[in-house]
Simulated assay, not measured.
Amino acid sequence: MIWFTWRMHRAQVYVGLALVALVMAVFLPYGEAVRGSYASHGVAACLATDTGGDRCQTALQAFMAQFNEVANHLSTWFSPLPGLIGAIVGAGLLGREYEQGTWRLAWTQSVPRVRWFTQRIALVGAGIVVVCAALSLVFRWFRAPVDDVSGRFAPGAFDLEGLSLIGYTLYAFALGVLAGLLLRRTVPAIVVAFAGFMAVRMPVEFWLRQRYQAPVSRLSAPTLHQTVGPSAVPVTPGKPGWTLGYDLVDASGRTLSNAQQAALQDRTQAMHDPDAYLRSLGLQLKTVYQPASRFWTFQLTEFSIFAGLALVLLAVAVHRLRRRCI
């Protein structure tokens, strides 16, 4: 079966290796440029000591302005990659057998069709894990300097740098296998599998992920810049977490309304020392966030969700194949 599976899927193996080589060719040279700028701006020293000084703030802003947008755009282009890889490989596993009529020969040999099916799934799935692990390492190396500043919970980082990438691809692969079995056509199965992949991944990314664990909150002294509308609040210097929200609260812990915050902004913007005025009112900035230390816990949780769904789908495919008449 190993030799047979290799003969059936060697083209996909070559494509997978070519994909890894292409990603390395795109990301590794640019990653060297990111690391050079990271060193020249002294970002590591700022993160190790204090990100609040003017010099460090200037260095961090210059570095992120130069690379953060580009890093996110490159990662965004590769975000559909797990769904495409899994859907294409999975849909062809049975869809091609039906289209070409080779199932009549394959399923009437000495090897039972369920064993034939499960062994191919195991071998192809192992190949998917290897390719995705290699891609994840490349993405992690590329984004590491940016992640030191912005954190690994950003979608471009979280989706491509850890176990979640493997889980996404296995889920799309399982969808493709089941769709190929039910539709008996490769291209329609790819479309259905990719659509089903996105239909699950989007709610997980934008709604469920932040609820894997209850967030924590932190109170800090507010500044005028933060009251106007900060884009990011550094939770711990050098260890950026995932900021879910922030509010101004008074001394009793009550959140100021939007009208109160707007009025406060109008009063403080014209003052010589607005930060001191904010502190004199007893106001604090309440940041709700997921700590950076939870990254691998969240990765394992998300991988478990998608890998578990993949196992369920493959079990359904095995059951349907066993009951299907030849």
Results as ranks from 00 to 15, higher is better:
62 A>M: 01
51 T>L: 06
159 D>A: 15
116 W>A: 06
100 Q>Y: 05
91 A>F: 03
171 Y>A: 03
190 I>K: 11
140 R>Q: 13
137 L>C: 04
176 G>N: 09
138 V>H: 03
64 M>E: 10
58 T>K: 00
86 G>L: 08
62 A>P: 10
102 T>Y: 05
159 D>P: 07
168 Y>G: 09
152 R>F: 13
157 A>T: 15
107 W>P: 01
45 A>Y: 04
102 T>S: 15
130 V>S: 05
116 W>Y: 08
134 A>I: 04
182 L>G: 06
167 G>Y: 13
191 V>I: 14
84 L>Y: 12
51 T>Y: 02
98 Y>I: 00
66 Q>C: 04
108 T>W: 00
108 T>P: 02
182 L>N: 04
165 L>V: 07
128 I>W: 03
56 C>N: 09
139 F>C: 14
94 L>W: 06
177 V>L: 06
81 L>W: 11
183 L>Y: 05
173 F>V: 04
117 F>T: 01
184 R>L: 11
101 G>E: 09
71 A>I: 06
144 A>S: 08
58 T>M: 03
66 Q>F: 02
193 A>S: 14
185 R>W: 02
154 A>I: 11
181 L>A: 02
100 Q>G: 10
183 L>C: 05
183 L>Q: 08
85 I>R: 07
52 G>M: 06
148 D>L: 00
135 L>A: 07
170 L>G: 11
86 G>W: 04
86 G>M: 06
184 R>T: 01
66 Q>S: 07
127 G>W: 09
143 R>I: 15
175 L>E: 02
150 S>W: 07
182 L>C: 11
136 S>M: 14
154 A>E: 11
169 T>P: 07
68 N>P: 01
188 P>I: 03
94 L>D: 04
45 A>Q: 15
158 F>L: 11
147 D>Y: 07
118 T>C: 14
85 I>C: 10
137 L>T: 02
132 C>Q: 13
107 W>E: 15
159 D>H: 12
69 E>L: 15
79 S>R: 12
73 H>C: 00
150 S>P: 00
128 I>H: 08
109 Q>N: 06
71 A>W: 00
69 E>P: 00
119 Q>I: 01
117 F>W: 14
193 A>D: 10
100 Q>R: 10
177 V>I: 14
134 A>L: 15
173 F>P: 02
47 L>A: 01
46 C>M: 10
160 L>V: 14
46 C>W: 07
129 V>D: 10
166 I>A: 12
192 V>L: 08
61 Q>K: 13
159 D>Q: 14
67 F>V: 09
